[in-house]
Design a protein around this nucleic acid. Structure first.
Length: 118
DNA sequence: CATCTGACCTAGT
DNA sequence: AACTAGGCCAGAT
């Protein structure tokens, strides 16, 4: 039942989840790039909000691989205390130092460039 | 119903 | 170069 999902929002959310799940292990992406890749340039904020509901999404969405443009783990406060973003990223081979991803440019993953989604 | 905030980014001054 | 303002849109108060 239902749920009366709003088609547009649902679409947007679906795209965000899809892109986020496409991020390879050991790589990270940024909200703005994801937003832009789904055709919502400037809607980076929405992406963050959508990812906030990604915890309930199935399969699991690697939201920890999504950071802001500066490589800062801005969303770390929203993760479980038992599973902090830094820990998850480190376990995947990403070096994190104080809320920031080192070599961010190197581990950065562009949805449109790498996957050419259009 | 009005107002503000929010896992952000770009552009203008 | 630093700061301000605007944009995106939906949830929360």
């Amino acid at each position: 039942m239902a749920t009366t999902p709003k088609p547009e929002s649902n679409q947007f959310r679906n795209d965000v989840y899809a892109i986020t799940r496409l991020i390879p292990v050991g790589r990270v992406s940024s909200y703005g790039e994801i937003a832009e890749s789904i055709g919502a340039k400037g809607a980076a904020r929405r992406v963050g909000w959508i990812l906030n509901g990604s915890f309930d999404a199935v399969p699991t969405v690697p939201a920890h691989r999504v950071v802001n443009r500066l490589g800062l783990l801005t969303g770390r406060m929203h993760f479980s205390e038992n599973m902090p973003m830094e820990e998850l990223l480190r376990s995947e081979g990403v070096v994190v130092e104080k809320e920031r991803v080192l070599n961010f440019e190197a581990v950065r993953w562009n949805p449109m460039v790498e996957c050419e989604i259009e």
